[in-house]
Design a protein around this nucleic acid. Structure first.
Lengths: 141, 141
DNA sequence: CTCAATGCAAAGTATTTGCAACCGA
DNA sequence: TCGGTTGCAAATACTTTGCATTGAG
């Protein structure tokens, strides 16, 4: 076991390795920003890009987009569409509902198991349910 | 009662009137395409624009966009975001879940009452639930 | 007549792509 | 070395906006 086990950098490297993705400099930076501290995170390409710029490493916005897509295809992230104007990416790949704060465009996880379906429709003939997206839109009260 | 009561044109005019929107030529055309036959419909700006062109009336794509937005603000339509790349508008304003056919990008209504929640999370402090969006993604099986 | 609605083109915003330079295995 | 990655700029897709013209009340 590496002496750096458990460090953000180590987590990031392992995360990439688990998906068979090459650990390039920019991927490691982005991965560390995403899961370095072990917490789940919701980002947009833009927000992650800004965070990456803050680290001093040179990363282009296009690469952030491409990387987020690669991570998603590899199963490391889920893409969430709530707003139409931008895509959110979630480091929590498990099936769960989201809170969308309409006032500031923030996306957070709904408490685990908070949403339970009593009934779901049967899929129409010739189709199967791939996924059920639940977005709970919140407004300041 | 107008002798034309029940005709598509009459429905369209009434629909606009109920929202206090001026019955201009293009709004009437679009309204008739949307609810003229009394059925619910799911459209994108592009699909509605094409349909409108087929009627021979001169309508610009920008006007379709602006009109769909006006109708939505007026409460005649709901905007649905499933895909990120385009907005769908639904003539059924009631709260209901949708089927999204991933293969051809089509959007349809889930059977009424097909989705029942056993449990919904309490809204976080200082917020209230504005709306719960449920999109059931279907894949050909 | 007056002000809202429209058409068109130009501007925006979010995202993807083409291609040469680069770098990790 | 070799093929996957990156950066940049240009391209794309969708939607909104500015402004002069039109039309409904």
């Amino acid at each position: 076991m590496d002496e750096r086990a458990g460090t953000p950098a180590w987590r990031a490297a392992n995360w990439l390795a688990s998906a068979g993705l090459r650990p390039t400099r920019q991927r490691l930076v982005l991965a560390e920003l995403l899961i370095g501290d072990g917490n789940d995170r919701h980002v947009t390409a833009e927000s992650l890009y800004e965070a990456a710029c803050g680290t001093g490493t040179n990363v282009s916005l296009a690469t952030v987009y491409n990387t987020l897509r690669s991570f998603t295809v590899a199963g490391l992230l889920t893409e969430i569409t709530v707003d139409g104007t931008r895509s959110y990416f979630d480091t929590d790949v498990s099936d769960h509902a989201h809170f969308y704060w309409e006032d500031d465009g923030r996306l957070t996880d709904a408490p685990l198991g908070a949403v339970q379906f009593e009934r779901l429709p049967d899929p129409p003939e010739g189709a199967e349910i791939a996924k059920v997206d639940v977005v709970i839109r919140l407004r300041r009260s």
